[in-house]
């Protein structure tokens, strides 16, 4: 009997028992890592762009960016190891490279990013203390592979979630990736902006954060639309506010002069960072819920949701 001859699903489930298993992740640890990976990766990328365009004129911003990029290989990696159920075997992540596993690819990206970012940060640290050294020039070279790895760091985590059977993560792989990527750039611009003393550079970073948050907002709405289309929308809470609030604050700050503008910008930057972290943790938690609810997972696995051949 082919698929089309099957009687349609009447909506009944097996005693409401889950049809899927939710990921056994600690959502605070893994959500925290995804946030830090995005923040660090995008910070390295933006710093490299800043260094390429402004050179020594933006040395203080570049320095902060390179130190910010150390969050993922240190705190972030620790979060990942702590999340393992057998943490003493963390090094088994590097037994092989598996293209079908974003977690395998991501482990290698994290290693590559960690090595190049650490090298860049150490060179920065040394160059600041050894006058007239050539180390600054070496850092300008090592930052390039670090920035490329940083681009992957800020988005591979979305592929990792989409490459599962959890309905909410699998429903809209592209918009989830756009959300994670834009939120990473927004967090990095916000974090760099918070420490920025130069008004012009701060405005640039705020402008960039506004652009990234606008992309995130659009992708969030696209995700919610996709969830309704595949029939797994839980009709629950709206998540657009996590991008909309910092977006409005930062836009307002760009219109306000002087101290008031800076104050609102600080508020907006903090909201962007908090929103970025909350978005990752909530995505994990809401995904777990969608996996546990068999009426949603069985709906997602209907033939009308099969990819078009």
């Amino acid at each position: 009997m082919s698929m089309n001859e099957q009687p349609a699903w009447d909506g009944r489930t097996y005693y409401n028992e889950p049809q899927l298993r939710a990921a056994p992740f600690n959502n605070a640890l893994v959500g925290g890592y995804i946030f830090l990976a995005g923040l660090s990766g995008a910070a390295q990328l933006l710093t490299t762009v800043m260094d390429a365009t402004r050179g020594p004129g933006a040395a203080s911003t570049t320095r902060r960016g390179r130190y910010l990029a150390m969050l993922a290989p240190t705190v972030g990696a620790l979060c990942l190891i702590l999340d393992l159920h057998t943490p003493q075997r963390f090094y088994n992540m590097l037994r092989l490279i598996k293209p079908t596993s974003p977690m395998s690819l991501g482990s290698w990206v994290l290693v590559g990013f960690g090595v190049t970012s650490t090298a860049t940060a150490v060179l920065q640290f040394a160059a600041d203390r050894l006058r007239g050294s050539r180390l600054r020039g070496v850092a300008r070279i090592t930052q390039v592979p670090a920035a490329l790895a940083g681009a992957f760091m800020s988005t591979y985590t979305a592929s990792l979630l989409s490459a599962t059977s959890t309905p909410l993560w699998a429903a809209a792989p592209k918009s989830l990736a756009v959300r994670f990527a834009s939120s990473a750039v927004a967090s990095a611009a916000a974090a760099l902006g918070l420490g920025e003393r130069n008004d012009r550079r701060r405005r640039d970073l705020d402008n960039l954060a506004v652009a990234a948050l606008a992309v995130e907002l659009a992708a969030t709405l696209a995700s919610e639309h996709a969830e309704r289309q595949v029939g797994i929308d839980d009709g629950g809470k709206q998540s657009a506010g996590r991008a909309a609030v910092p977006l409005v604050l930062l836009l307002t700050s760009l219109l306000l002069p002087g101290f008031l503008g800076r104050a609102v910008s600080t508020l907006g930057s903090v909201a962007a960072l908090g929103g970025g972290l909350a978005m990752r943790v909530d995505t994990l938690t809401e995904g777990d819920t969608s996996a546990r609810q068999s009426h949603r997972s069985l709906r997602f696995a209907q033939p009308d949701n099969l990819p078009r051949a």
């Binding site: 049809q19 681009a151 988005t155 490459a163 599962t164 209907q302 033939p303 949701n305 099969l306």
Partner: peptide
Amino acid sequence: NLPRAPTRPANRIAPSLAAGIAT
């Protein structure tokens, strides 16, 4: 409690990575 039309998760990696990197 069986899914009628399950899918292969790995097929979602390429479109997702492409969209993220492009962003």
